[in-house]
Nucleic acid binder design. Structure first.
Length: 453
RNA sequence: GGCGACGUGGCCGAAUGGUUUAGGCAAGGGCCUGCAAAGCCCUCUAUUUGGGUUCGAUUCCCAACGUCGCCUCCA
């Protein structure tokens, strides 16, 4: 049973399932108006690990994750660049999934788009108005937060407390709203903007409505888990929940939020601070697995700093694991050690303690390497199977790197022949040549192993 | 101002009311090797500060200092 921190109750509690054997998860996806950044990468990796682990434990996982393809930022960019807004959303979504593919993130089971659910949103807003939880102004339709008794549940702050602080921020749309915390469900269109028709006037949906409609339609009332980055806790998730409460519908049963990615100075990466790092740059420069490795060694709720030193350490650690995969590739026929697997599950069930799980992996690899040195093949195969089972459940693929061309293999044979003949000058020359081509060359009594570095 | 999180060794980063406080990276020594690489073994350095509770705290409580987040752009 997976125990998971729940933001609503501020405690670790079992993830209860509405339908036995099945997990329903809603993950807030990106607004497609720019390239994915490190924060997006962290969120998708964290929930990819969660999803894979749940699947590994035998559950059927339905993961719905939306694409916000209509939003002020999209419209602004379209206007700035004089392009159709659909041009931007389509392109950005393609870039998004390409990047996620490189990260090894499995595509969600459902990828709803906001623009596909406008009619349902209009219907929902209509119901909210009927229930006296929303009202029309001259610039849109707003939800009345005072109609939601426990508004602030996720923010852990009452409405009064929220308003008492906050310094001197300008309240968006203050002039039109009954309460400063009321938020837009529908925004009336301005000239030149994309719009849909509604009983109150042409316009477009506010950000917080799509997730309510799509999660309830795809996953149903009382779905198991709602997740996203910590920055979505408030206002986005609070406001999703508020709409659902105002509708009289049971929303998510459990709320999960991942921690931030911070910059080298320890500050949150944020678009407004201008210190975001592009995920595509990272993927271009490093082994994509390094980011997953870094996150696996960090608890998902802790902030994580992504720096060159960090990533380099992960690249080195991966090299060791790849090397292990390569040297034990002849012993891939074992069954996992039940004790190791039990420890793995215990760690994961404890609020996804992936750092402990990785420590277990490294310990097991060391034990298997030692068994390899000792010629204890039976132990090697069972420990190797354990390592691969765990890493597979975490989405971390190892590369034995043994898919080298025949002429390279031939050079390895030549190298061995030279060594056997004690012609070390020739042997070293061959090795240097291979290494300069980027291969890792490991000679041993069993023969030379050449793999991609 | 309100609410919350956190301060662990050279770096990253877990865990825990008590024999020796994970793991990764880096560093040093050894074994192995023709020499390397890979691997194995060994070693090194830590719980911000000050009080309190306790037989005993890094862990619980209080305070200080510091860092970070949220309080209607954000994964």
């Amino acid at each position: 049973m997976l125990n998971l921190y729940d933001t609503a109750t501020q405690s670790v509690k079992p993830l209860a399932l509405r339908d036995p054997g099945k997990v329903s998860i809603y993950l807030c996806g990106p607004t497609v108006y720019g390239p994915p950044h490190l924060g997006h990468g962290r969120a998708t990796l964290v929930y990819d690990i969660l999803r894979r682990y749940l699947t590994y434990t035998g559950l059927e996982v339905r993961l719905a994750s939306n694409i916000t393809d209509i939003d002020d930022k999209i419209i602004n960019r379209a206007n700035d660049e004089g392009r159709p807004w659909q041009d931007i959303t389509t392109k950005c979504e393609n870039v998004w999934f390409e990047a996620m593919g490189k990260l090894g993130v499995q595509r969600p089971t459902d990828v709803p788009h906001a623009t596909e659910y406008v009619e349902q949103m209009v219907n929902m807003i209509h119901t909210l108005i009927e229930r006296d939880a929303a009202y029309v102004t001259d610039d849109g339709v707003y939800l009345s937060v005072t109609a939601v008794p426990d508004y602030g549940l996720l923010a852990h702050q009452s409405l009064d407390d929220m308003l008492s602080g906050g310094g001197d921020r300008e309240v968006f749309g203050a002039g039109n709203k009954k309460h400063p915390a009321d938020f837009a469900l529908w925004k009336f269109t301005k000239p030149g903007e994309p719009s849909w028709s509604s009983p109150w006037g042409d316009g477009r949906p506010g950000w917080h409505s799509e997730c309510v409609v799509m999660s309830l339609e795809l996953l149903g009332e009382g779905f198991d888990l709602h997740c996203g980055g910590a920055d979505l806790r408030f206002p986005h998730h609070e406001n999703e929940r508020a709409q659902s409460v105002a509708l009289g519908k049971t929303f998510a049963n459990h709320w999960m939020h991942n921690g931030f990615v911070v910059d080298p100075e320890g500050e949150k990466m944020s678009k407004s601070l201008g210190n975001v790092m592009n995920l595509l740059d990272l993927l271009e420069k490093y082994d994509a697995r390094a980011y997953r490795m870094l996150l696996l060694q960090t608890h998902y709720r802790s902030p994580v700093r992504v720096g060159q030193d960090n990533i380099d350490a992960c690249v080195s650690a991966l090299a060791g694991l790849d090397s292990f995969a390569a040297r034990t590739s002849a012993h891939a026929d074992g069954e996992a050690n039940s004790e190791v697997i039990a420890k793995f599950r215990a760690a994961m069930n404890n609020d996804l303690d992936t750092a402990t799980a990785m420590a277990l992996v490294f310990d097991t690899v060391r034990a298997a390497n030692a068994a390899m040195d000792a010629g204890d093949v039976a132990t090697v195969s069972t420990l190797r199977a354990s390592v691969f089972e765990i890493l597979n459940a975490l989405g971390l693929a190892l590369s034995a790197g043994d898919d080298v061309d025949a002429d390279i293999v031939a050079k390895g044979v030549a190298l061995d022949a030279a060594r056997a003949a004690k012609d070390f000058a020739t042997a070293d020359a061959i090795r240097n040549e291979l290494q300069s081509q980027g291969y890792v060359v490991e000679t041993s009594k069993e023969g030379t192993r050449i793999r991609r570095g």
